[in-house]
Simulated scan of single mutants.
Amino acid sequence: MSFLKLQNIEKSYAADRPAFSCSSLELAKGTKIGIAGETGSGKSTLLRIIGGLEKPDKGKVHMDGTSVYPKLDRLIPGHPEMAYLSQSFELPKFIKVIEFLQSNAIEEERFDQIASLCRVKQLLDKDTRALSGGERQRVALAKVILKEPVVLLLDEPYSNLDPHHKRIIKEVIRDISKETDVTILMVSHDPSDLLPWADEILILKDGEIVQIGTPKEVYYQPVNEYTAGLFGDYQKLDGSKWSSLKQDLIVRPEQLTLNNHGKTGEVKAVYFHGNHELIEVKTAHETIQARSAPGTYQKGDKVGVSLKLTDYSK
């Protein structure tokens, strides 16, 4: 039985443009769900509908077989068993972190556990005004985890963080996923952040879900160029020239391997990317880009090219 279920959802802010539309969506309990899409694709709207913070124009959302919306007749918006952390959260001023967090009635042992989990123990005696952006993010996350939600909704938790604090908050979210049974849905403005974390990824475009799959499936088997482009470099190749398939292929650079056999192509450019180089090769049929270890090829080299496709469908 699905844990979260959306049926016939429609939500619009303007008559000529739906913000989100979904005929059916079912999510299992305890899963980590990534939500990706371009700006304005409906990612935040989907989170808010699931969390009961926004009611759709039509349709139903059920959690564990019970409708989310009958619980919305409350002074504080949102479903009481769901926690939503927006990208524009604010902490109260003129208060110490420990005072802010301990407003929740919770046992000391559990408080210490969550403070450690969220990497905020060393911040407890600080004033909230003295915190960096990354520290504020972890404190805000600790606050919602202390409420022991059944579902955690994270709206771009990595936005506006420097690499150091982004790495820390990634570790925190990873540990929360491992050490609790909370179901987590996360939006990220950089979809590549979702690949190593999520069990499944939903791809949204113009308010509709265009693909659902495992990280490997949406990365290596995108349904279209829109999905492919969200996750980095790709190229569209004539399938008849590379395999028995007649349709065009969407291929990542690492799916193409350069070798010294056949030497049917010529290296036209080499682009350095730190831990790898992107090698542009002109073949008899088309120009392709493949990844290689730094220093392996130079402009003008003659190379062979092979393609490896793997089926990651469930």
Score class of each variant (00 low, 15 high):
Val97Ser: 00
Glu156Ile: 00
Thr183Asp: 10
Leu6Ser: 01
Gly229Ala: 08
Tyr13Phe: 15
Ile33Cys: 06
Glu81Gln: 12
Thr214Glu: 15
Arg17Leu: 11
Leu117Val: 02
Gly133Leu: 12
Asn259Arg: 07
Asp311Gln: 01
Leu53Gln: 04
Ile9Lys: 08
Lys178Phe: 08
Leu307Tyr: 13
Ala105Asn: 12
His276Thr: 10
Ala198Trp: 02
Ser243Met: 01
Ala115Pro: 04
Glu148Phe: 08
Gly265Trp: 08
Ser192Phe: 12
Lys55Glu: 12
Ala198Gly: 08
Arg167Tyr: 15
Gly51Lys: 02
Phe94Lys: 14
Ile168Glu: 15
Ile209Ser: 03
Thr183Pro: 09
Glu217Ile: 04
Pro18Leu: 04
Leu152Gly: 04
Ala14Pro: 02
Lys308Leu: 15
Ile209Thr: 07
Thr31Tyr: 07
His165Glu: 14
Ile106Phe: 02
Asp181Gln: 15
Lys268Ile: 14
Lys143His: 10
Ile250Leu: 15
Glu107Gly: 10
Asn259Ala: 03
Asp206Leu: 02
Leu85Ala: 05
Glu217Val: 01
Gly300Ala: 02
Phe272Trp: 08
Ile168Cys: 06
Thr180Arg: 09
His62Cys: 11
His164Ile: 15
Asp301His: 12
Ile145Val: 12
Asp175Ser: 15
Asn160Gln: 11
His164Gly: 09
Asn224Tyr: 08
Arg48Ile: 00
Gln289Lys: 10
Lys147Asp: 10
Lys246Cys: 07
Val151Glu: 04
Lys60Cys: 11
Ser306Ala: 13
Val251Cys: 09
His165Leu: 12
His285Glu: 14
Leu131Phe: 06
Trp242Leu: 05
Gln221Asn: 10
Glu135Cys: 00
Ile33His: 08
Lys246Asp: 11
Leu124Ala: 01
Ala290Asn: 06
Gly78Met: 02
Pro163Met: 07
Ile95Met: 15
Thr214Cys: 05
Gly51Leu: 00
Arg252Gln: 12
Asn160Ile: 03
Phe100Pro: 06
Lys241Val: 14
Ser188His: 07
Glu277Thr: 10
Val267Gln: 11
Leu85Arg: 06
Thr283Ser: 04
Tyr158Val: 10
Phe3Val: 11
Pro70Ile: 02
Val139Lys: 04
Leu27Arg: 06
Val144Lys: 01
Asp175Leu: 15
Trp197Ile: 11
Ala83Gln: 02
Leu85Glu: 07
Ala19Leu: 10
Tyr226Thr: 00
Ser132Asp: 09
Ala228Glu: 09
Ser306Pro: 11
Asp155Ala: 05
Gly295Val: 04
Ala36Asn: 11
Tyr226Asn: 01
Lys43Gln: 00
Tyr219Leu: 12
Ser177Arg: 05
Thr180Ser: 14
Ser306Ile: 11
Leu141Thr: 03
Cys22Gly: 05
Gly232His: 02
Tyr158Ser: 14
Ile169Ala: 05
Gln298Asp: 13
Gly207Val: 02
Glu171Gln: 07
Asp233Gln: 13
Thr257His: 15
Glu107Ile: 06
His165Ser: 13
Ile114Arg: 05
Pro56Glu: 00
Pro196Asp: 05
Asn275His: 12
Gly34Gln: 05
Lys121Ile: 06
Tyr234Ala: 07
Gly265Cys: 05
Phe272Lys: 06
Ile184Arg: 09
Cys118Arg: 04
Gly300Gln: 07
Ala115Asn: 05
Ser313Met: 10
Arg291Leu: 15
Ser88Met: 08
Lys5Asp: 11
Glu38Asn: 10
Val187Asn: 07
Leu6Met: 10
Ile169Val: 15
Ser12Leu: 04
Thr66Gly: 06
Gly274Lys: 01
Leu249Glu: 00
Lys314Ile: 06
